[in-house]
Design a protein around this nucleic acid. Sequence first.
DNA 1: ATCTATGGCATTTTTC
DNA 2: GAAAAATGCCAT
Length: 860
Amino acid sequence: MAFEEEEFIEEEEVRESEEEEVAEYRIKGALSASIPPSIVLSVTYDGAEGKALVKLYDPQSDTVYYWYDNTRHRPYLITDVPPEVIAEKYPDVLKHPGFSHLEVVSKYDALADRTVQLTKVYAKDPLSIGGGRRSIRELLPKTWESRIKYHHSYLFDRAILPGMWYRSEGNGLVPVEVDIPQDVLKSLTTVFSSDDEREEAANWIPLFQAPIPHIKRVAIDIEVFTPQENKVPNPKDALYEVVSVALVGTDGLRRVLLLKRPDVKVDFDALKDAEYEVLFFDNEYDLIAEVFKTLVQYPLIVSFNGDNFDLPYLYNRALALGFKKEEIPIVARRDYVTVAPGIHIDLYKFFAIKAIEVYAFGGVYRGERGLDAIASAVLGIGKIERQSVISSLPLDELAEYNFRDAFITLYFTVYNDELVMKLVILLSRIAKLPPEDLTRSQVSAWIRNMLYFEHRRRGWLIPNKEDIIASRGEAYTKAIIKGKKYAGAVVLDPPAGVFFNVYVLDFASLYPSVISKWNLSYETVNCKDKENAERPIAELPHWICKKRRGITSLLVGILRDLRVHVYKKLAKSASTQQERTLYDVVQSAMKVFINASYGVFGAETFPLYCPPVAELTTALARYVMTSTVLRAIELGMEPIYGDTDSLFLLNADNEKIKGLMDYASQLGIDIDLDKVYRFVLFSGRKKNYLGVTADGGVVIKGLVGKKRNAPSFVKDLMDDIVERLRSVHTLDDILKTRDEISALIRDYESKLRERKITLDKLAIKTTLNKDLDEYTKNKPQHVKAAEMLSKAMGIKLGRGDVIIYVKTRDALGVKPIQLARIDEIDDRKYLEYMATTVEQVLEALGYSMEELRGVAKLLA
DNA sequence: ATCTATGGCATTTTTC
DNA sequence: GAAAAATGCCAT
């Protein structure tokens, strides 16, 4: 089909205007430039320039500013060897090509509780410190101080805080004053009791109160010609044409750039009604030039998997097409890809952050990684299903498909009053990590950065992991689970049965509260000054300093108190809806840090790893739990179940609960009434129950019929059972329901026996947590199925892929669903599955063992 | 390159 | 054939 000439815009015009805009947009500000109040988008070390580069954005004028800092950018290494000794004994250090200069500094060594004189060995660039056989580090003696990690002075001093506002004054950037509301200021005196805490809280409050501007942004998604289906083109080679690029911006831009291809059809009528504009291009060079022209007009580029695909592909493709490097506004960094003049956020990486998945999104997209699955779960919109491969899709359909992907990508950052953007900025401020780094690193890196910053701000030495272990020791207790390092939480053994009117309490932020209340920190635990310390719990030999306030205890405590006593309240009470949602984001950002604060001390990968801190946290939490259980009994209540920080009580009423709350507050822990269940059905197993609240809401924990890998046949049965249970109010109802449930089970059983069921209902979904060849010790069923599938279909399967299979009667016992037929299935296995599912409910409903065996026999 | 922690249940595979 | 190890999913 021939293209109609009038559909195209004049390409000459495009090219001309592009160069102007790039030139104008790049480097609007330099060190001397005047910068109006602007938010810091990024702070990076520009190795090539040898300078620190700050990118700022002024939303008022919609301008990106660059600001170079020449003064304090050098990375350095700290050693306890004095400068004159270095000159005399280690002259190679001074002759090292990466060496810059020396400086003597005084630092507080928290592990030894004394101030020490140290030498900073400045380097020209991180490479001359970081690694390789010829690094400066290798030339210094291995005393403990010289094993201190090198510090990039700019990144850890963080003179300029990401997400905060600055303007230029003289030759430097100065912070823009933040307005603090009266009631927040007042909390400094009402919430915090010591001067230490008040001073610390005063430092933090501006981070939460500084305005978060709307940042103009564009989402990009590209489609590439693929000769083979299921084969993603390699962005390194960028062998194939970029056939379509969708750009969707917050400023109303909705555009799809299409490459004309003579062999591919296009339905122009369909495009006329489209909600986006379409530009056709005769050649790929012009198409990509237009993309670049758009990218340079935004301070923020958003993508889904842009780090690993879209941006490197565009970059390499542009090079291959003859662009010069300086014409391409895409910059590859060590771990990610960024853009000029703005920054780039890859939402694929952001959503892969466990803490974001769990705390920010409540696990709604748990385990899913693709755009379609995450968008469906978070936004309720999915990708467009396409009928054929990208390469042969008619251009109008390609545009539609491409547009939707970019639209979803942008919408992630826009929905719910820009929740995600606000969250990113706030997390950025707390962690002192620029958004580009924050959105690509796990929570342990956020906390590490936050703590490093606090050390630097106080003039503290940052200790090495080995030194913490050497002076503070390892864990003392043994874990119940083999292979773990220390004892964790208590779980009370629940009785089997149905219990009415159950009150559920939880200890609010138990672990963080314990850390705050008992002054837990790597430097206060097992400190040198044993005279001024005490053992908090007989079970453990560890002692804690009474004189000094621990840095992690202080910070966790401040964040927790600000969250609970200030921002959670403001999220409910602030005058406008807008303020309330903003404060809600503030409190959820704090929650992420607070919740992760315990775990990192038990993680060997964490630089401030300190097993005694982690172990004391869980031990003291066990003490809080068990002593509260005893107190509950004294008050006349009957604890029937509890796990870590939750407690299920019978015979409770508001007065008794008040008594228990008073007890806990003496321990320094808050108790909340979480729920009141009309009844709870315990199977007798830990972490395994079903509860119905007064309003008929159902909470199910740990039952096999609800697990992700259960076949939907079993899930349906479970749903039906739950539906019957919702109407239970009294013990009599239970007896009636028992009979109904028995009937249901027989019904499902006969459906299965008579194969009145589709294959997909029997499918079991299991995730590969490793690549196929890593299963060396064992070969589980889903791996066998994966191997068969891989062979039959020629698909590569590995870590993260979900295998869908059914149980069959043949020797292997399984088949991937794609290769199986309904007559091959092993109904015995499915009956067993059904039996364990219903068993968990029936045991609670008081079936005797004989009756249960009857059911089991029935099912077998 | 680095993915906060431990406790519990069900199933299959491997080992003794 | 029983016990132990491996695996995955979930609770907190």
